[in-house]
Structures are given as C-alpha cells and as structure tokens.
Design a protein around this nucleic acid. Structure first.
Lengths: 261, 261
DNA sequence: GTGGTTCGTGCCGCCTGGCGGCACAGCCGG
DNA sequence: CCGGCTGTGCCGCCAGGCGGCACGAACCAC
C-alpha cells in the first residue's frame, strides 16, 4: 500500500531540490503530470515549510528552504554524531596534516557524512553524501568488523561486489581480515581506491559495541610507514573519543525524551 | 488547497527525523493519528527512499536515510555553493587562524550553511542550520547591502527587530551603514553577538551582482586592529573567489539544463 | 497593435485512493 | 496463563485529490 499523492509530492520536492529555482510547468513536464497536481503539491510543500516561492517579481519559482538542511544533518543513528565528531576530526587533521573523513553505515553501504581537509588536499576524494559498499574501503571494513555475527552473515550472504582491483570477494578471506581488524582496532588499505593514497580507519561504537560510524585518515602512500604507529594510535583514539562524546551527551538521549513526554 | 495526506506524511517524516529510531505506535500517539495512517505513511516514505526500517531484530524501528542528507546540502540558491566555497573557506581559515562561516539569505534571515574552524575554537558560534535576521550580524549586513533597492525597501518595511544591544533599529541609520558597506565591500562588527569576538564579512554575488551568500571571519576583539587591513583583504578576496568559482562552474547552469531538455 | 505562445492560477465534477475501525500474531512482564 | 504492549493486514465507506479546462498576464515576432 502506497499513498499515491505522497509519492508524487516527494517526487515534486526532489525535482525542486535538484533543479531549483523552478516553476510549475517545468516540473509537470519533467514528471509527466498535470499542472494542477504539481501546483497542489507545491502549495502543500510550501505550507509545510519545505519549499518557498522565490521573492523575485515575474513568474513564481520555487526553491527549497533550510528546513531540509536541518533535517539532512540528522542522518546517522545518532542525532549528535556530527556535532560530537567535528572537533575531534579537526584535531586529528591538525595533528596529522592529512584529510579526515567520517562515514556512517546505511544498509550495505557507507555514506560520507563529514570531511575535514587541509587547503593542500582539496578534493581528492568522495564529496559528502556519496556512498560505497562497506567491504571495499578500510573505513567500511572497520564497521563490518564490529557488526553482530548475524548481521555480518546477512551482509556476506548477499555477495561481495568487486569494485576495485584489491576488493576482497572471497567471504572466508574477508572474514579472516575482519577478525584481525577487530582484534587490532584499526584497518589499513594501500593504493586501494586511488594510487598513491593509503587509508587508516577506526570505528565509532555505541555502549553495546555496535558500530555507529568510522573515522578514516588518508595519507600519501610512499611515506606511509613513517608515522604509521603514531597515526594508528591517533585514528583509534579519535574513534574512541567520538564514541565517548556521544555517550556523554546522549546517555539515554532518545529514551529520555520518550519518557519525558 | 492542501493535500491532506501529504501534510500528514511530512509530519510523520519530521517525527522520524527528530526521534529516530522510532516505531509506528509511538508516532501515532505523538501526532494523534491512527496507526493505520502512520503505517501507510511509513511504507510510502520507505519506498520513496526517505526512511528505512532499522535492521535489528524485534520491533520495527524507522530511521531516515542519507537521501535527506544529499538534499539538505542543496539549500541555497546555487547548487554548488558549498562545493565551491569549502576550499576557499579552508584556505581563509588557514591564512588567518580564525573560524570562518558561510551563510545564505533565506527570506529575512541568514542561515548558517558551512563553518570551518580550528581545533582551538570549537563551538563558539551558531551550529549549522541556525538562523538570524539579516540586519543583526555583519555577514547579514553585507547581504542586505547588495540587495536590489526594492527588496531592501521591503525588508525595512517589515521593521527591524532588536536582538542585541548593538542592533540598528533605525531604518535611516541602517541605510547609511549599508551604503558605506556597499562602497567598502566589507562589514565589521565588534563585540556584537559575543563579548570579545569581532567579525569581518564580505558578500558572494552572482553575475548580476545579487547576493548569494556571505563569508565571515570571527576574531578575538583585543588584537582586532593588528591585522585588520590584511584580514579585510582576505575576506573580500574569499567572497569574490567563491563567486568566481560559481560562475565558472555554473555559467547558465540551470538555464542550460532547461534548454537542453 | 495583434495574434501567437508561454507562463501561473483557480474552479469543477467524477471516481478512486486513502481514511479509521477492527482483527490477528508475536512478545513481554506479572 | 493472561492482559498489556507491539507491528501488520484487511475492508467498506466517503471525501479528498485527480485531470481537464478556462482565465489573466507576460512575452515575442511580425
């Protein structure tokens, strides 16, 4: 059972978000729907505060409001993940001089939620919002390594897509690799996604040990060994500190709200 | 004319976003709606990819997906504003050692879209997504200063709320201040929002000179004079560079898409 | 001017899509 | 074992939302 008008309205909203500023006719053509329907969706979305008509004179153009911005920041299991993580990520970047990323698991994929870089290393990697299967990157692997046994089995059961030359597609081999990652607390990859770039990653876990996110550090491959021990320690410490900040801020956060109702 | 079911579904989505992970009954109680209705909304939102059931065994809990994350990043008139701005903001921070913010105008308010800080100055200011009227902060004033005459008149016509001790509430005085900001290309405020913190700001404009966003730099007030000339130049240059990057990436971006259809 | 084309907006009647009530299965604590 | 809580699925009734159409305004070519 799907609510047809809701599906339509969400499509309209997405078109507005992608093509803003945009008018009724353009949208109706793009979606193959009658202008009346689109118009209704627009005013409804507008009254709900998700979009608004642009202020300029002339034909009415719609743009999205910052409401969706505020909501977009809530992605991830924990409401305050980004808030808690950002200072730690910045400190890690300052300590290592390397770009730092934060991903959260979403189904079989990891989604890049935050990224702090230095001026020297502007856009080497994925722009925020992009995704990759968990088993192809070091930061995804630290998340897999912390998954409960049955969830990991479910993941492996759906097969391991090969996306890079180095991708591990043999479930048994991946299982062994994850076991050693779990034991060490960190994962590394060398030249896996981009030649000349290596990655160190560690997990952010909740109080029960379930993975919430992963921190990763991206370094040039050649002097990779130089500060390896130090960098490993820093990455692992960052993962732990983010988790601790979440717990401190959020002890029963959601549950507390529910009770207080 | 509003689409009732869409309004309801959006409410459901917002509740999920705020209280995730959450179940059907909890939502129906919170919104005072029947479980059936909420259930329908949830599966619809789920099929549209906005939310998903959490993977754990036991009762079904819903969480939002990263789709809303990707959409939230599109706030602001220009699709690529954040992408274009981030490297420039980081360079400005590295050059000055001070936290840098980027706001976009939305109606009468400025919304904090991006913020790059140093480890030393973690959370002095507004968290992203928050908003303030344009006339109370230096970054808002540079936007007002670039507004077309009739839009500024409309803004002034609705009155100037006094939010800080230093807020200018006299339209004539604000008009004079904006004129000099327009002439100089930058705005400053000293101890306006937080005692001991001063701000320098400049605007990001499109090819027609309309304001798209504003960059601001936040410095301790006491040694404010020291590098003032240098910092002013840096802030103004950053605003101009972001605008140039946008134009380069987006010459007729939207119009081009429309034509290409 | 004028006829053509777009645009956005508003109305209306028909019909289907979504509403709420209810029933049922599973789970937990008393 | 029972009474409360979940989440889920079905059904009949009715109004909410659909598409078609019409209107005023803006723009362009002629």
């Amino acid at each position: 059972m799907v609510l047809r008008s809701v599906t339509v309205a969400l499509q309209v909203f997405e078109v507005v978000a992608m093509q803003q500023p945009i008018g009724v006719s353009e949208i109706s053509r793009r979606l193959g729907m009658s202008k009346s329907t689109v118009q209704r969706c627009l005013v409804t979305l507008g009254e709900a505060g998700w979009i608004r008509p642009e202020v300029t004179a002339g034909p009415t153009r719609w743009v999205i409001t910052s409401k969706s911005f505020g909501i977009g920041r809530r992605v991830g299991n924990s409401r305050h993940l980004r808030t808690a993580a950002l200072p730690v990520l910045e400190r890690l970047r300052d300590a290592t001089g390397a770009p730092v990323e934060l991903i959260v698991p979403e189904g079989r994929e990891g989604v890049l939620i935050e990224r702090v870089a230095t001026a020297a290393t502007e856009w080497l990697f994925l722009p925020p919002g992009l995704r990759a299967p968990l088993h192809v990157r070091a930061d995804g692997k630290v998340i897999l390594a912390r998954l409960p046994e049955e969830d990991l089995e479910a993941y492996l059961g759906e097969g391991l897509e090969m996306l890079t030359r180095q991708t591990v597609t043999d479930p048994m081999r991946l299982r062994r690799e994850l076991a050693s990652i779990r034991a060490r607390g960190w994962a590394a990859s060398i030249d896996e996604l981009v030649d000349g770039v290596s990655t160190l990653a560690s997990a952010v876990v909740d109080l029960e040990g379930r993975p919430l996110a992963a921190v990763s550090l991206h370094l040039p491959s050649e002097p990779f060994q130089v500060h390896q021990a130090r960098n490993r320690k820093l990455v692992v410490a960052a993962g732990i500190e983010i988790g601790a900040r979440l717990d401190g801020r959020e002890v029963g956060g959601r549950a507390g709200l529910e009770k207080r109702r």
